[in-house]
Simulated scan of single mutants.
Amino acid sequence: MAIEGLSNKPWLLLPGTLCTGAVFDRFLDGLGVAHTARTFVTLDRPSIEDYRVDFDGLATDTIVCGFSLGAIVAAHFADSMTADRLILFGLNPYADDPAKAPLRHALLQDVRTFGGAAALKTRLADIFGPAPDATRAAICQMAEETAPLIGAQTQLALSRPGALPALTQAAMPVLAATGTQDQASPPPQGQAAAQNAPNGQFRRLDGLGHFAPLEDPSACAKVMRDW
């Protein structure tokens, strides 16, 4: 796919838990996407259905791109959005595992008590890519900035249904991309999402973890150009 097919369209972007739009910035810079073409959805509402308004009436040339919890939200509207294509990084298309609830509530409490950076620092899985220390610092900075959103994001994560039924009805091309070292959303989850979409493809991001767009934005941009 020529880069012009990605750089000259509007992008609707959904970051993950305790993330800002910065999780996408260097990846989009690598694709040549203008800052004026980037619209970000803030995950500040507690249920999937609260986000339907963000997908109603999209321009048909819009590229929708989500990361982690943002990818989950986007995937739930794959059956109804009018978009050019759907890109999903670090997606878990299944309903949340009830066994994760205590960990989510503990994170919620720690973010409220100590702040986003302090709460996340001790919980970060291994970070990969060419500059892991810088990536880790960027993740903690995003967590600090988005700490006030953790209540809504926790409820959103706990209450979401599975997204596979919506993906089976997706009219646009769907790309699920997952780092081979992703411990939060392992590659089989992205594979399942792609396999359920009528025009779905899966790409492994070799040697990268859950924060692949931050860990190696150039590698992620290359995957998009080769798609």
Rank of each mutant, 00 (worst) to 15 (best):
Pro188Arg: 05
Ala166Phe: 07
Pro198Met: 06
Asn199Val: 10
Ile127His: 05
Ala118Thr: 15
Pro130Gly: 09
Gly207Asn: 08
Pro173Gln: 01
Val174Gly: 00
Gln141Gly: 14
Gly209Pro: 07
Leu205Val: 08
Gly115Leu: 10
Ala170Val: 09
Gln141Ala: 15
Leu175Arg: 04
Ile150Asp: 05
Gln155His: 12
Phe202Ala: 03
Ala166Thr: 10
Gln141Tyr: 05
Gly151Ile: 03
Ala176Trp: 00
Arg136Ala: 13
Thr154Glu: 12
Arg136Trp: 05
Pro98Phe: 01
Gln195Asn: 14
Thr122Ala: 13
Ala192Ser: 12
Ala99Gly: 10
Ala147Gly: 07
Thr154Phe: 02
Asp182Asn: 09
Ala157Cys: 08
Ala125Ile: 01
Ala171Met: 11
Leu156Gly: 03
Gln153Lys: 04
Ala192Gly: 01
Leu208Gln: 04
Pro186Thr: 03
Asp97Thr: 01
Ala193Lys: 00
Pro198Asn: 09
Ala157Thr: 11
Ala170Lys: 03
Asp96Gly: 01
Ala157Trp: 13
Pro187Leu: 02
Gln195Ala: 15
Gln169Ile: 04
Ala134Trp: 00
Thr113Gln: 14
Leu167Phe: 12
Asp126Phe: 00
Asp97Leu: 09
Thr122Phe: 01
Gln169Lys: 15
Ala125Met: 07
Leu158Lys: 05
Gln201Met: 12
Glu145Ala: 15
Ala166Leu: 09
Gly179Cys: 03
Ala138Val: 06
Arg160Gly: 01
Ala170Ser: 14
Pro187Arg: 08
Ala143Trp: 04
Asp96Thr: 13
Leu164Ser: 10
Ala176Lys: 01
Pro130Ser: 08
Ser185Cys: 15
Leu208Tyr: 07
Gln191Leu: 13
Phe114Arg: 14
Ala138Gln: 14
Pro148Glu: 13
Pro187Gln: 04
Pro148Phe: 09
Asp126Ala: 15
Gln183Ala: 12
Leu175Phe: 08
Asp97Trp: 05
Leu107Tyr: 08
Leu167Gly: 07
Phe128Cys: 07
Gly207Ala: 06
Arg112Asp: 11
Leu103Trp: 11
Ala197Ile: 09
Pro187His: 02
Gly200Glu: 06
Leu205Thr: 06
Val111Arg: 03
Pro186Asn: 10
Pro187Ala: 05
Ala184Asp: 14
Gln195Thr: 12
Ala163Gln: 06
Ile127Tyr: 03
Ile150Cys: 09
Gln191Arg: 15
Ala99Glu: 11
Ala125Phe: 04
Thr180Lys: 02
Ala157Asn: 13
Met172Ser: 02
Val174Leu: 08
Lys100Phe: 02
Ala131Tyr: 10
Arg204Gly: 10
Gln169Gly: 00
Ala157Asp: 14
Thr178Cys: 13
Leu108Asp: 00
Ala171Tyr: 00
Ala147Trp: 05
Pro198Gly: 10
Ala166Val: 12
Leu107Val: 00
Ser159Val: 00
Ala119Glu: 07
Ala176Arg: 00
Asn199Lys: 13
